[in-house]
Design a protein around this nucleic acid. Sequence first.
DNA 1: TCCGCTATTGCAATTATTTGCAATAATATA
DNA 2: TATATTATTGCAAATAATTGCAATAGCGGA
Lengths: 152, 152
Amino acid sequence: MTHCHTYIQALRNQGYRITPQREMIIETLAHGDVHMSAEEIYQQVLQRSKAVNLATVYRTLDLLVDKGYATRFMDSDGKLMYATEKHGTHLHLTCRICGNNYQTDANLLNPLIRQIEEMTGFKADFEHIALSGICKNCLDQNINTLKKEKEV
Amino acid sequence: MTHCHTYIQALRNQGYRITPQREMIIETLAHGDVHMSAEEIYQQVLQRSKAVNLATVYRTLDLLVDKGYATRFMDSDGKLMYATEKHGTHLHLTCRICGNNYQTDANLLNPLIRQIEEMTGFKADFEHIALSGICKNCLDQNINTLKKEKEV
DNA sequence: TCCGCTATTGCAATTATTTGCAATAATATA
DNA sequence: TATATTATTGCAAATAATTGCAATAGCGGA
Ligand SMILES: [Mn+2]
Ligand SMILES: [Mn+2]
Ligand SMILES: [Zn+2]
Ligand SMILES: [Zn+2]
């Protein structure tokens, strides 16, 4: 019993109809790579059945994101990527200089999420977040350049 | 001397050419609403001069984001929005149920950013972040429904 | 099992964003 | 100020993502 069945069951309980398209799309995302684009999911589902449409993939992904079962973020090429939260939470650090992507323990977010809840009552999902900044390598290499920029 | 001149000057110092298009686009974003779409900026710049192209707006906004002078996020309609960091840092909380958008003191992020830097050396920008979750209102109203979902 | 209701799909059209390329214009240099 | 260099622009085409609508098919009830 894998987690994609949890999502499917939860959707059914909320009154959503379970179509073969939705099942295949959810299974593909849940069992595939951590991050997948709509197009990648579409191509994989196509190999199983001709009865899918890219628009349906987008709509199903939207539904999953709405429900909080998946997260969406924009990769460095500007394309939207999706991941189920069951693949583990993410904290992406993207370097503005070299473009490298670092992943960090998402537990770092726990205190932030707890504090937001205490202060505002808002219960933030413990999910994928992407922060941009400058990585250690680039900081070291560009320390002089950066100093000059700051002086402006 | 407004902050848009700071960005323009910084770009010049880095060897970027300062064109009237770039000036107008940067001024418009820096002096306009906190969040603006590329299309909105384009329309405002058009009123000043016919010599702008939407593609140039997108390219200039990309440059600002790359340099860390502006941030980009996707609004609830799926459109990309831009804001200069000089408009103040943001912490958006978007409710998955009612769709409302709450803004919170971005200083909440300070400890997280500090901890990331200590652990990884990555210097995250102190910038616009959007978290999704469920707001207090919706939590209260839907507490039973949510409980049921969890049991699945 | 069949039927009716209506959510969901596929398709095509629309909108949003990106990109290649030739023309233009910003800057450095003389 | 005139010239050379090359980054930037505008345009049009490509790609990514969304949406309206008629056809289809889940699912609950007879
Ligand atoms: Mn991720
Ligand atoms: Mn913002
Ligand atoms: Zn880097
Ligand atoms: Zn809400």
